[in-house]
Design a protein around this nucleic acid. Structure first.
Lengths: 109, 109
DNA sequence: CATGGTGTTCGATCCCTGTCGTACAGTTGT
DNA sequence: ACAACTGTACGACAGGGATCGAACACCATG
């Protein structure tokens, strides 16, 4: 088709400043999601596709977690071919919730 | 009885440093509990008994929330007569989880 | 002692969410 | 065209936690 593929090429990304504190805390209160965030915090680039994380859940569940993180303004996602790449929105999220992300991921569980 | 009353006069208080991050986040991820913490953050004393908080839940539920906050190392409780007084463990908790408490209560929901 | 006030404990209920299997869509490569 | 790979969508399920009523324990005060 001429216009756009059926798959959303530009995913909806909220402004972290618009995210309710409740949603932010809910997103951070899951160990699988914190694991994802810690992995993303290592390098500030677009090198990590969803499938490259070693998670203790099946892919359907992992997909759900990525969606929650995106809705909470914690990650940004971009499609590149068949893969969906991820980036930690450290700056934006920290502006909206100073200290929260650092306090959560700069620590073992 | 000679030794102690049946009611626990000295309540069990954990060291915040021993609290798992998961428990801390779970405790903070509830709006009723955050409301309690914000109220306690106003004055650093023992002026607030459990019943003096204006909460949208019944007392059985409120009692449960206070227990969760105590188990997470967020508050300290002391019995004074028929009442149970509360204090925010700001310093101790912040030492264990730098920035987490501030990021959570220094903000409207 | 009797009454009222404060707070906990115990079941029971309800709802939310994390989990998974399956099916599907889109991409890549043969 | 076909197969393999990546990720999402949907329905179903189970576990946990928030909520409540009722009963109980403790304290204070008449």
């Amino acid at each position: 088709m001429s216009v756009e593929s059926a798959r959303a090429r530009t995913l909806s990304h909220v402004d972290p400043a618009e995210v309710p504190l409740q949603a932010a805390l809910d997103a951070l209160a899951d160990p699988v999601r914190r694991s994802i965030l810690r992995d993303l915090a290592v390098h500030d680039d677009w090198t990590r596709a969803c499938g490259t994380f070693d998670l203790p859940v099946k892919k359907a569940t992992a997909s759900h977690h990525f969606a929650v993180l995106r809705a909470a303004g914690l990650i940004e996602q971009r499609d590149e071919g068949a893969r969906r790449l991820n980036r930690l929105r450290r700056e934006e999220f920290t502006n909206a919730f100073p200290g929260l992300l650092a306090a959560t991921i700069d620590r073992a569980d």
